[in-house]
Nucleic acid binder design. Structure first.
Lengths: 328, 328
DNA sequence: CGAATTCATGAAATCGTTTTCATAATCAGA
DNA sequence: TCTGATTATGAAAACGATTTCATGAATTCG
């Protein structure tokens, strides 16, 4: 492998000048520039990024935390972030926390050991107090998930409004017995807020809720199947169900259909995210502007890295949209 | 940020000894080991990975190329690879080529500039001759996609067999007018082989094909909708259709259903991949052992990196499985 | 014309590790 | 007790870039 020294020798110049050409510094004559460029080509030279990283103290790499990349919501988020990052000359390191505190923490070392310039968190497993100390090693941007105590920029949606919107829609359609089927992850602010919004919509309308209409730990299509199985057994089942994702909604819809129930006559269902699957299954759902979230978060991150200023708390709150289809 | 020098000073020892403790070299007394460990803790020291990379000439990072991470087939692949990589102490850099030659090429620089130890390609856009030269910079493993000329390990499935299996199934069910709806990407060996297998199954059974029953450039649910629209217009439409993905199959099934067609009576449909969506829509499909592919590819990659021997051509060919559901 | 800028280049320091080499101390065997 | 291996440690080189500093040439300005 050719080094900058080899190029310098071949061009009959110093390392410094070669470096200047590479980094487009001023004060290099056209003639030397040509000499250097030619030498680089002849030697098939490329700067060694480890050396550059060490000297520059930056890596041009950003870590993105997601629970699991197979979750379409997160893969969509990552797709857009990857595109944006590439545009701005950054690489993306993918960190799957798999909903585990330990995994999340283990990836934090990336920032500490200077393997990445910053962290984008799309989910938070640990208490913020556990993450906070890492801020001294580089910027962190939170996106989708959020935390009141986090003194960093966050791009998110007001999930209270989102679930309120969806629940209100069910109420407006005339349903009064409404179930709730979500992940309900303890450490997740998103989960908590969705529940708050749901309950608020009910109480605003003076509609009662029933403990047995709550189904938790539902993330996948399979979980939707299971939830319907429970629901079906009830003496007094809900007429409609609010879910935390299109997968869960689709699972319930499919299971209901297989059991001979009609949607929405026997059971109305509302999903969340507006994934391709929701269109396929004709599910009413609540759309989150994933592209915008991703782009905003990446923009904030790059700004933070380049400004090298300490990050301040800052909230970018984006709107939801209800997509009405035939399942409600 | 504390450096190894600071630790050495605090412990009253040399950099060398500290380095030995960090890297668990022999010949350090327990006493000094304690001294060093304590100093590291007190200073909250972590080795700087850029420096280590530079000196060691390796990055403990692997690049994975996928067309788009939102494609569930690829996100599943990446999920498993990420898990395996983490287990073995490697990071994953995600490279989305977006089906573009230029993007694919631009990411190749990662290997050249020593930002990653190796490349796993799950799709190939450029001719192998364009990629070949990069082998001198580090190992490349091909996975899912394959190329006859590539002198590297490949983990893949014999797509001729896969599509033959699916098509044969349609024929066995009694269908004689069979359509074909896939991506048909020119540079993709997978595409080519699927078509070969499809045609072979037809010709083995003495069944004719018709040019107007071929639909190309179909990747998404939307493309499935469009394909059905075309299909519906035909005077003599096929009775069954072989597709290249569950998304496309689902799109066709949905469009058919919306148009009042019955599946499979009016149109039988077979998908590919066995994604959750296939179960939801009750689609017969062909399952690819994604977990195994991913694990095998990652295993080969790590071996290649650690052996530091030049890679040889090697083929790992895995079996398909037909999942029969109600769409055929 | 002399002084002050601006332009152009290179030598050497620097980034923070790991590795090689040298050296001293300890231990085992004859 | 001497020899040779083994254990334990540190000084210095190496990894390959960028950046600082110094210096000389060319240009501008009063």
């Amino acid at each position: 492998m050719a080094t900058i020294q080899d190029v310098a020798k071949r061009a009959g110049l110093s390392r410094t000048t070669v470096s200047r050409v590479i980094n487009e510094h001023p004060y290099v004559t056209e003639e030397k520039k040509r000499l250097v460029t030619r030498a680089m080509q002849e030697l098939n030279y490329v700067p060694n990024s480890s050396a550059r990283r060490l000297r520059r103290q930056q890596t041009e790499t950003i870590a993105v935390y997601v629970p699991r990349i197979t979750n379409p919501f997160f893969s969509h988020l990552v797709e857009v972030m990857g595109k944006e990052a590439a545009k701005k000359g950054y690489q993306l390191i993918l960190c799957q926390t798999r909903y585990k505190k330990e995994h999340e923490r283990s990836f934090l070392e990336l920032l500490k050991t200077k393997q990445v310039d910053g962290l984008i968190l799309t989910s938070i497993e640990n208490d913020w107090s556990k993450l906070e100390p890492y801020l001294s090693f580089g910027p962190i941007v939170v996106c989708n998930e959020y935390s009141d105590s986090a003194q960093v920029p966050s791009v998110y949606l007001n999930q209270i409004e989102g679930s309120y919107l969806g629940t209100k829609h069910l109420i407006d359609q005339g349903y009064t017995k409404i179930g709730y089927c979500t992940g309900n992850h303890k450490s997740s602010r998103v989960s908590k807020d969705r529940k708050i919004g749901f309950l608020k919509a009910l109480s605003d309308a003076g509609i009662p809720m029933k403990e047995e209409w709550f189904f938790y730990n539902a993330y996948s299509v399979q979980d939707g199947f299971a939830a319907f199985k429970e629901l079906k057994k009830l003496d007094d089942p809900p007429q409609a169900v609010f879910t935390g994702s299109d997968e869960v909604a689709a699972g319930i819809a499919k299971a209901a259909f297989d059991a001979g129930w009609r949607v929405p006559e026997d059971l109305a269902i509302i999903g969340f995210d507006n994934q391709p699957l929701a269109e396929l299954m004709d599910l009413t759902t609540i759309e989150q502007p994933i592209d915008t979230i991703a782009r905003q978060a990446m923009k904030l991150m790059v700004e933070a890295i380049q400004a090298k200023k300490p990050l301040k708390r800052k909230e970018v709150i984006l709107p939801f949209q209800l997509i009405k289809r035939s399942s409600t």
